[in-house]
Simulated assay, not measured.
Amino acid sequence: MRRVRSTALHLTSIAVGAAIVVPIVFGVLGGFKDNGQLFNSPFGLPDPWILGNYTDVLGSEMFWRQMGNSFGVALATTALVVIVAAMAAFVFARYSFPGREGVFTLFAVGLMFPFAVAILPLFVLLRSMGLLDNPLGVILPQAAFGLPVTIIILRSFFRSIPAEVEESAVLDGCSPFGFFWRILLPMARPAIATVSVLAIVGSWNNFLLPLIVFNDSEWWTLPLGVRQFQTQYSTDTARVLAYVTLAMVPSLAFYAIAERHLISGLTSGLGKG
């Protein structure tokens, strides 16, 4: 039974890995082909290899503007959600006060609130605040919807820090904010890295919110750029594949770099969550 279970687990892992890797490889190789090669040999190697699809995209000013917009929105969203969630998680983890668990549960309920349900009232609210065609119209809602999972992860990690560490800091004359800033945050780097990865990738892949906020193409992010490029070159599938591949490279690279921190941050403090 153990061997059967192990074999089934390996086969499932291979199937899941193939389902993820095969489309990526197909897109990367497809960008080096022309439409004729894609039609005649969709899963074969390019023959000849055509670099023009990638160089045309990389030479596009619009592509780099959209990438810059995506980076700016993602970094601002991450900074805001991590700073606010870290302070809230510190209070929920290290202080006892009436209604603490109720307020924390209210944040946790936010995980069950679909973003798409709020899109219409959110659009009306942003319009009334004058935040359409404004990066803040994307940054602030993304940060708000990212708070629940970020607070839950950071609170779990903060609660795993022994109380003796805080007592020693207080005896050395450290204020509560000093303990939070100088001791707790440096110790929480794996958890902070985890929530930062989740926030950056979530912002990078967000399509619906930028779609309703940005009417001016100067503010478009890469997901909107992919849609526009696909519409513009709907008959040139190879060029569209090249654009999509280049658009997903930053998020894949960031995941690859932060993978170790992501895993360790998700598993840290689970015993006291």
Results as ranks from 00 to 15, higher is better:
L185A: 06
W204D: 06
L147T: 02
A163M: 15
T150Y: 01
A193I: 12
L140C: 10
I192P: 00
I161N: 09
L185S: 07
L140I: 14
W204E: 07
L136Q: 03
A191I: 07
P186D: 09
L209M: 02
V165K: 12
S168C: 13
Q142F: 02
L185T: 10
Q142T: 05
D172S: 08
F179N: 06
I192F: 03
E164R: 12
P176W: 14
R159Q: 14
E167Q: 14
A199L: 02
L147D: 02
G137W: 01
P141Y: 05
P190R: 03
L140F: 12
I153L: 14
I153G: 09
R189A: 14
P162F: 07
F179E: 12
P176G: 00
V165I: 08
S203N: 06
V197S: 12
P210T: 01
A199N: 04
A199M: 00
D133A: 08
E166D: 12
A163V: 10
C174G: 11
E164S: 13
V197M: 13
F157H: 13
G146Q: 00
P210N: 04
A169Y: 07
A143S: 13
R155N: 14
G146R: 01
F180C: 04
I152R: 04
M129R: 15
F179R: 04
P135R: 00
G202W: 05
S168F: 11
P135T: 01
P176Y: 13
A169T: 07
V201K: 04
G202M: 04
P210Y: 03
V195P: 01
P135I: 01
T194F: 04
V201C: 07
F207I: 02
A199H: 03
I139P: 01
G178F: 11
R155F: 10
I153K: 11
L208W: 10
S168R: 15
P135L: 00
I152A: 06
I152Q: 08
W204A: 05
G173D: 09
S160V: 08
E166A: 05
P135F: 00
E164W: 12
I153T: 13
V201I: 11
P190G: 09
I200A: 07
E167H: 13
V138L: 03
L140V: 13
V149D: 00
L140H: 06
S196H: 04
W181T: 08
A143G: 14
F177W: 15
L147G: 06
L198Q: 13
R127D: 12
L131M: 15
R159L: 12
A188C: 11
A188K: 05
A163D: 15
P210W: 02
P162Q: 08
I151N: 09
S196K: 08
T194G: 07
F157R: 10
I153C: 09
S128C: 12
